[in-house]
Simulated scan of single mutants.
Amino acid sequence: MKYIVYVSQAKAPFSKLALKELLEKSRARNSNEGITGLLLYRYSDDFDKGYFIQAIEGPDDVLNALWDRISEDRRHHTIVTLAEGKQTDRMFPNWSMGFRNVEAKDLEALPGFAEIETESFWENLKANEMPEAVELLRGFY
């Protein structure tokens, strides 16, 4: 089984309704295809931008097809893979797509992720100085 963890920036902020629709479609499709994972969304008032961090896992061929759809989705950009690999056990076995709309206070104790909208986040990401992405998501799980 394969997993991918990535961050991206929303092209435009997502409303609660848009997030609900995204989750309903994702959960239905993921359940049918054997995909599990977790999606976090963070909106920044300061920059009027939304950011995603997501972990997805499942059979290689199915996950590769999902990754192609995610990569081509025009609702977000600046897609950066944080972690990718193979595993025998699922990290999120009970969630077709767990979700949390994250506030800044939820991230205060997580150095590097507290200010995803800042330039330092992206500089640290390029320098590979980020906290372990999978462990971050497992913490929310």
Results as ranks from 00 to 15, higher is better:
residue 57 E to C: 00
residue 52 F to W: 10
residue 24 E to V: 10
residue 99 F to W: 02
residue 93 P to Y: 02
residue 61 D to G: 06
residue 121 F to L: 08
residue 32 N to H: 03
residue 119 E to G: 07
residue 50 G to K: 04
residue 89 D to Y: 07
residue 11 K to S: 15
residue 104 A to Y: 09
residue 121 F to W: 04
residue 26 S to I: 09
residue 122 W to I: 01
residue 66 L to Q: 10
residue 111 P to L: 06
residue 115 E to A: 15
residue 5 V to Q: 05
residue 12 A to C: 07
residue 42 R to S: 07
residue 20 K to G: 03
residue 28 A to M: 12
residue 69 R to D: 03
residue 97 M to C: 06
residue 28 A to W: 04
residue 128 N to K: 15
residue 86 K to I: 10
residue 12 A to H: 15
residue 103 E to G: 01
residue 133 A to S: 08
residue 32 N to W: 02
residue 126 K to N: 09
residue 22 L to C: 04
residue 75 R to S: 13
residue 66 L to E: 10
residue 137 L to T: 07
residue 70 I to N: 06
residue 132 E to H: 06
residue 76 H to T: 07
residue 73 D to H: 05
residue 18 A to E: 15
residue 50 G to D: 08
residue 124 N to I: 03
residue 11 K to Y: 09
residue 135 E to S: 15
residue 92 F to V: 01
residue 121 F to N: 06
residue 117 E to L: 04
residue 110 L to V: 15
residue 141 Y to D: 13
residue 29 R to A: 14
residue 131 P to N: 03
residue 5 V to A: 09
residue 54 Q to S: 02
residue 123 E to M: 09
residue 54 Q to E: 12
residue 19 L to D: 07
residue 39 L to E: 05
residue 83 A to H: 10
residue 137 L to E: 11
residue 41 Y to R: 02
residue 135 E to W: 05
residue 46 D to F: 00
residue 103 E to Q: 07
residue 21 E to F: 04
residue 76 H to D: 10
residue 98 G to L: 05
residue 53 I to Q: 04
residue 14 F to V: 08
residue 100 R to K: 13
residue 114 A to I: 08
residue 73 D to S: 03
residue 81 T to Q: 14
residue 6 Y to R: 04
residue 81 T to A: 10
residue 78 T to I: 04
residue 128 N to S: 09
residue 97 M to K: 10
residue 3 Y to T: 00
residue 44 S to A: 09
residue 124 N to E: 09
residue 118 T to S: 15
residue 60 D to N: 08
residue 21 E to H: 11
residue 141 Y to R: 11
residue 45 D to G: 08
residue 44 S to E: 06
residue 48 D to Y: 01
residue 104 A to T: 14
residue 133 A to L: 00
residue 109 A to M: 12
residue 19 L to K: 10
residue 42 R to K: 12
residue 127 A to V: 00
residue 49 K to Q: 14
residue 140 F to Q: 10
residue 62 V to P: 00
residue 108 E to Y: 11
residue 72 E to L: 12
residue 118 T to H: 14
residue 125 L to Q: 14
residue 94 N to Q: 13
residue 139 G to H: 11
residue 78 T to C: 07
residue 103 E to C: 01
residue 10 A to D: 11
residue 100 R to W: 02
residue 129 E to M: 09
residue 4 I to C: 08
residue 27 R to D: 05
residue 100 R to I: 08
residue 19 L to H: 09
residue 105 K to G: 00
residue 67 W to G: 00
residue 137 L to D: 12
residue 139 G to C: 02
residue 75 R to F: 05
residue 63 L to W: 00
residue 63 L to T: 01
residue 30 N to R: 05
residue 133 A to Y: 01
residue 7 V to A: 12
residue 125 L to M: 13
